[in-house]
Design a protein around this nucleic acid. Structure first.
Length: 572
RNA sequence: GGGCCUGUAGCUCAAUUGGUCAGAGCAGAGCGCUCAUAACGCUUUGGUUGGGGGUUCAAGUCCCUCCGGGCCUACCA
């Protein structure tokens, strides 16, 4: 038994995430965590909300609420949606937790002691009307290059020229529109990650089995231009983790907070501390996952994230850990994803384009979404959601191949033998052949799941479902029943057991349907099949069952068309 | 501008890293079955692997070039 630490990139607090966000981190992380638990390993699966930063403050202001209250509410909303999608976090934390405050301040203190923090005085734009410093992209004005009047302070969207906020003609606040802006001096802490460049480079080089997407982004940041740049890790905001050196004040940094991208990854660690506290465990319970000197040496740590998060997980966070000089666990494998597009364009939070988590659950059960999203995960390139594809895949795979198999077996059994598994009869060459095929496919399925090759794993699982239909067709119990009822009984006994195996193997993808099947079979046996012959003999003759409700109904053309138009534009 | 990814059957994707006639699912066509959610099974049509050039005994795979799609480029997170 191994110990697997799994984290999903933590979703930002300012709203409900869309399906693209879901499939980029939380859902595949859940798949992996469930699979590893199913195989009998000890798993710690952590996620949280990322609550700090300017957008959170603005969203709270827009909602007319104190930011702490807003975040607490949105955390509850996101937690509820996570439950709705059956995301099996051991803990869903908050980056604003006291644990994260302590740990973030601790890391900053260690980094400072080791010479990895620099203080830089810089010029930033301050808006009197908004009462805050403005990040570059919250300043709008006319582009000096092309004359576009809605250029942002970091870049002009029209001509793509990189800009400095002071380049803008007639600059104004993108928040209030105020032109009462001034440049002020402010002092910030920088993480001197350039000092760790060689160490990070060697570490990335050693990860030969990581996805290209992951390593190429890291390499780019390490070697582009002048190489890895130091990064500001503090901000002039009120909402965040106060800048402190461990437990002590940081002279000259009063009133400042750490930048979200410094404290967000540390929340992975803090989330486990929150978990320990919530369950009344001592600190050692969470530290054994994170400290290699306190039991984490045998932990395998896997992170899941969209490609936009890769630089922070391959460079900044590792630099934080390395620079601390303390034996914290570094990530062992980073699984990164491309984007999921929506029907010919991008999902858009601002335009309400696409399907959001709450809307998805309001029209179909979680399993439908889980199956489609995972079996089409954007692993090698950006993928696209279309309603036609969704309808076709879900109807065919879930309703026809899996659902109908369960239906034909259980209903046949009920009508010919009654509601218990029939006895008698012997298995023959067809069963031997089936078991051989299933055994080979099981190995392939496990290989893909171990390697986090999600699409391939889904395809293999589907092929395992198909084996059942092929077998039934070849064995034809309805024909055997007329001449040799005991032979039909043997076929059905095996098929009923096959349903249990399907439930166990499918559970990481479609947990609710799997549990429905196990309940119908009146069994709690969820043992992963170590050998197919044994696994297919778990339910004995005489074991009772009930015919389950239709496992998956089909999506009709009318539904598809209605949803297609409903989700095309503004959400409302 | 620079960097990275990507282009394979009508659609969604494979191809053991240079090695038999480029494979699967869906859609289409034909046949079979009647236990089942008009479901299932079998057979089958369909590709000059975006275009062009090159290296090699051998190229979807490596190199050059052109065309298309996407992402990143460090103060949104």
């Amino acid at each position: 038994m191994a110990r697997i630490l799994v984290t999903s990139a933590i979703p930002y607090i300012n709203g409900i995430k869309h399906l693209g966000n879901l499939v980029g981190s939380q859902l595949p992380a859940d798949l992996y965590a469930r699979y590893m638990r199913g195989r009998g390993h000890e798993v710690m699966f952590l996620c949280a909300t990322d609550e700090h930063g300017t957008p959170a403050e603005l969203a709270a202001a827009k909602a007319g609420k104190p930011v702490a209250e807003y975040c607490a509410e949105m955390h509850a909303v996101q937690a509820e949606l996570a439950r709705g999608f059956r995301l099996s976090f051991d803990h869903f934390g908050r980056s604003s937790s006291p644990q994260n405050h302590r740990l973030t301040q601790h890391f900053a203190g260690r980094l400072a002691e080791n010479g990895y923090i620099g203080e830089v005085t810089e010029q930033q734009v301050y808006s009197s009307a908004d009462g805050r410093f403005l990040p570059d992209r919250y300043i709008e004005g006319t582009c000096p290059n092309c004359g576009y009047d809605k250029a942002r302070g970091d870049q002009c969207e029209n001509c793509t020229k990189q800009l400095d906020p002071t380049d803008l003609i007639d600059p104004r606040s993108a928040i209030s529109g105020s032109t009462d802006l001034e440049v002020r001096e402010t002092k910030h802490l920088y993480l001197r990650q350039s000092l760790l460049k060689a160490k990070l480079d060697a570490w990335i080089d050693a990860q030969s089995d990581w996805p290209v997407l992951t390593t190429s982004i890291a390499k780019k940041w390490l070697h582009d231009g002048d190489g890895l740049q130091d990064r500001g890790i503090t901000r002039d905001l009120s909402w965040g983790i106060p800048v402190k050196k461990g437990p002590e004040d940081w002279p000259g940094m009063e009133g400042k907070v750490f930048y979200v991208w410094f404290d967000a990854p540390i929340e992975y660690i803090a989330a486990s501390a929150e978990w320990a506290q919530q369950h009344g465990h001592p600190d050692s319970a969470w530290r054994r996952w994170w400290r290699t000197d306190e039991g984490a040496k045998d932990v395998r740590y896997v992170q899941f994230m969209g490609k936009d998060n890769v630089p922070f997980h391959t460079l900044s966070f590792p630099a934080t850990i390395m620079g601390s000089g303390e034996p914290w666990k570094l990530v062992d494998y980073i699984k990164s994803f491309n984007y999921l597009n929506y029907d010919g364009g991008q999902f858009s939070t601002s335009q309400g384009r696409g399907v959001f988590m709450d809307q998805a659950l309001s029209i179909l059960p979680a399993d439908y979404w889980r199956w489609w999203l995972l079996s089409h995960a954007p692993e090698n390139s950006d993928a696209e959601f279309t309603w036609e594809n969704f309808q076709a895949s879900v109807n065919k795979d879930l309703a026809d191949v899996l659902g109908n198999f369960v239906s034909r077996v259980t209903k046949f059994c009920r009508s010919r033998f009654g509601e218990e598994i029939p006895e008698g009869g012997a298995s023959g060459p067809e069963e031997t052949a089936l078991i051989a095929r299933l055994s080979a496919r099981l190995v392939a399925y496990q290989t893909h799941m171990d390697a986090m090759e999600i699409r391939k794993a889904a395809a293999e699982l589907r092929a395992i479902w198909v084996e059942g239909n092929e077998y039934l067709q070849a064995a034809a119990p309805w024909a055997a029943f007329k001449t040799d009822p005991e032979r039909a009984a043997a076929i059905i006994r095996l098929s009923m057991n096959l349903i249990r195996v399907y439930a166990v193997l499918s559970r990481p993808f479609i947990p609710d349907a799997a549990d429905t099947l196990l309940a119908a079979l009146k069994t709690e046996n969820r043992d992963w099949p170590d050998s197919m012959p044994n696994a297919l003999a778990v339910l004995p003759a005489g074991h009772g069952f009930s015919v389950p409700e239709m496992l998956f109904g089909k999506i009709t053309d009318e539904q598809r068309e209605e949803w297609q138009s409903r989700f095309a534009g503004k959400r409302g």
